[in-house]
Amino acid sequence: MSTPTPFTSYVAVGDSFTEGMCDDLLPDGHYRGWADRLAAALAAEVAPADFRYANLAVRGKLIGQISGEQLDPAVALGGELVTLAGGLNDVLRPGCDIARVEAQLGAAAEKLLATGATVVLFTSTDPTRRMAGGARLMPAIQRLKAFVEQLGEHPRVAVVDLFSADCFDDRRLWAEDRLHLSPEGHRRVAEAVLQALGRPAAFDWRAPLPAAAPVSRPAKLRSDLRWLWIHVGPWLVRRVTGRSSGDGRPPKRAELLPYEG
């Protein structure tokens, strides 16, 4: 098997998934995230001074906002590798126009491919076994999954299939808010991207975690009530008031700069 050509520049585009929400905090107050972990692995393939990384992702963004706010800067940066993740925030909202989401995601991928970049896309995880009400999202998620897989037929598109990875049914791969990844979840996504790009496996990112200790019914109830109060309530307030968690927030790495993770 031939060794993949190293990348010397990487631009991450997307929402909270790519920003790195709920991973370990860095000294500057930003979350680390799978994209930072990926950048560190890619930088190790070349001399550190020869590798540059930018992360334009901002939490809460819809695919139209990602396209409108991040796409032109990403194109201008000219990264050899671009990861593009978006659309799930749209799917989570009632009345999602999935055809519009597909059109915007497809146009974004096409614009990035026109630069000559290798583009990484993602399928969503399956929410039905870990998230109350997840079944209502499935028609849109499955349609978007099929669309992403279709885009993956392009020779410079790599698709990371998170949907079929049963390990993401385990709540330990998710943060307390049940929407963002835990540090272990971010570690696995970074490895999944590396393998999708043809790198040799460092570990089996799909492997299940060791069995967890059983949770009592009262403890589960307390956890569910805490989740509703701390996470679901504020999310609903933002939806009603038309606000987003990313309003006014700049990207954590707006420029292509050397990265030593």
Results as ranks from 00 to 15, higher is better:
48 P>A: 09
195 Q>I: 08
162 L>P: 01
9 S>F: 01
11 V>M: 00
50 D>Q: 14
121 L>F: 07
160 V>Q: 06
29 G>R: 10
146 A>Y: 03
243 R>T: 15
104 Q>H: 04
214 P>T: 10
40 A>T: 12
248 G>W: 02
197 L>R: 03
111 K>M: 06
173 L>C: 12
233 G>Y: 14
86 G>Y: 05
186 H>E: 05
11 V>E: 00
67 S>N: 08
168 F>P: 06
256 L>A: 02
175 A>E: 13
199 R>V: 03
148 V>H: 09
199 R>E: 08
220 K>A: 15
99 A>M: 06
133 G>H: 07
213 A>Y: 02
8 T>I: 09
61 K>N: 13
73 P>S: 08
171 R>N: 10
240 V>S: 06
77 L>Y: 00
178 R>Q: 15
250 P>H: 00
23 D>Y: 09
10 Y>L: 05
242 G>W: 04
139 P>I: 10
150 Q>E: 14
42 L>F: 06
182 S>L: 09
112 L>E: 01
180 H>Y: 09
28 D>L: 11
154 H>M: 03
131 M>C: 13
194 L>M: 14
137 L>S: 11
117 A>P: 02
198 G>R: 01
260 E>K: 10
45 E>F: 05
41 A>T: 05
132 A>Y: 12
110 E>G: 04
61 K>T: 10
12 A>D: 03
19 E>S: 02
123 T>S: 13
109 A>M: 01
204 D>K: 04
50 D>M: 03
153 E>W: 01
7 F>Y: 15
232 V>C: 13
74 A>S: 05
64 G>V: 13
98 I>Q: 03
225 L>G: 09
18 T>D: 02
111 K>R: 15
127 P>S: 14
36 D>P: 12
250 P>I: 02
118 T>G: 03
231 H>P: 03
185 G>N: 10
55 N>S: 08
52 R>E: 00
140 A>V: 07
38 L>E: 02
128 T>H: 14
126 D>T: 11
93 R>N: 10
